[in-house]
Amino acid sequence: MTGTETQGPKHKRNMTRRNVVVAGGAAVAAVGAGGGIAVNAFAGETSKGGDAAGSSTSSGASETCYKLTSETTEGPYYIDADKIRKDITEDREGIPMTLRIKVIDSETCKPIRNAAVDIWHCDALGLYSGYEDLSSGGGGGGTPPSGTPSDVPSGTPTGAPPGGGGGGHEEPTDDKRYLRGTWKTDKSGFVTFKTVFPGWYRGRCVHIHTKVHVNGEWTDAGYEGGNTCHTGQFFFDEESVLASAEVEPYSTSTTERTTLTEDTIYDQSGTTGGLLKLKYQKKNIAKGVVGSITVGVDPEATHEGTDDAVQPGASASASAS
């Protein structure tokens, strides 16, 4: 939970104007109400991580049908939804990944349509677009991880990683925007992104950042108004990360890696904490990964994730998000 959250079953809406600029002047109508794409089953695939459904449902109105998905820090490298698109890959190399997210009201279990969902994450070598000078990517001919690393930090790392940093938002240092995007949920609450499997950097396990914005309006200018009802992160099981580490360019990384159980942001609660359900060919993850998760939110809440806590791998200038 963050210091800026409000608590309780119902909350006063934060109606601070939030304006999404559509890149290249494209009409927001191009977003469409869809978002789901057909996903072919992989032969010999493995399925790891959280249950996409997340929790059993109940028809009883008085019973909770789904737990709220854990809130986390926003991190310093968020850029407010300036790319309205489903395919966020751009020119980044890496294992192709389809990420399918379902957003539901955690009290009623009903899908939330027309929500604006942001995702952003580092590339295969740990770099964030917009912040390449600050983020701590690493690569170039090192020995890839094999098995559980013996040199991973336990708890919060000591010392300053290259390009690390303290809590709080950082202003972008470049105009690159790869591996960032916003799309809206369809009538069933689904939104689908095409991206690449993220890499890792010092102090954090492999993860994807997300925000869910509701109660606003899609206009010709983008998405306006409403409130940010969820700020969280999605996580990857160790088996999938170790498999990715055998594939270029991940295999060239020389950056020390933090495991899922050692990460200080992931709360170890499985799907509720953001653990993805992953499907891929067990012997050939390079062909692609499908990740899915259901995110339970309180649409009346405000969760910006902008507390000032120092994050893992923190130095004095910018935090490892």
Rank of each mutant, 00 (worst) to 15 (best):
G8I: 08
M15G: 04
N19H: 14
V22W: 11
G24C: 14
G25Q: 04
G32Y: 02
A33R: 07
I37F: 15
D51N: 14
T57Y: 06
S70L: 02
P76L: 08
Y77E: 02
Y77T: 13
Y78F: 15
I79D: 01
K83C: 09
K83S: 13
I84F: 13
E90T: 10
E93Q: 05
I95Q: 01
M97C: 02
S106Q: 03
T108M: 01
A115I: 00
D118H: 11
A124M: 08
G126P: 06
Y128N: 02
E132T: 14
S136W: 04
G140R: 08
P145M: 04
S146M: 11
G166V: 11
G168I: 11
E170Q: 15
T173F: 09
D174V: 13
K176G: 12
K176F: 12
R180V: 03
G181N: 00
K184T: 05
K187D: 06
T192L: 12
T192I: 10
T192P: 04
F193N: 09
T195V: 09
R202M: 07
H209S: 13
T210N: 14
V214R: 05
N215L: 08
G216H: 12
D220L: 10
G225I: 02
C229H: 03
C229W: 08
G232A: 15
Q233R: 15
E239K: 11
S244T: 10
E246I: 12
V247P: 01
E248I: 02
T261K: 15
T264E: 13
I265K: 08
D267W: 06
T272Q: 12
G273Y: 06
L275D: 03
Q281M: 04
K287R: 11
K287M: 09
G291A: 14
G291Y: 00
S292N: 02
T294E: 00
V295T: 01
V295D: 00
V297C: 05
D298W: 04
P299E: 01
P299N: 02
T302R: 01
T302E: 04
H303T: 15
D308S: 11
A309D: 03
Q311V: 04
A314W: 12
A316L: 12
S319W: 11
A320D: 04
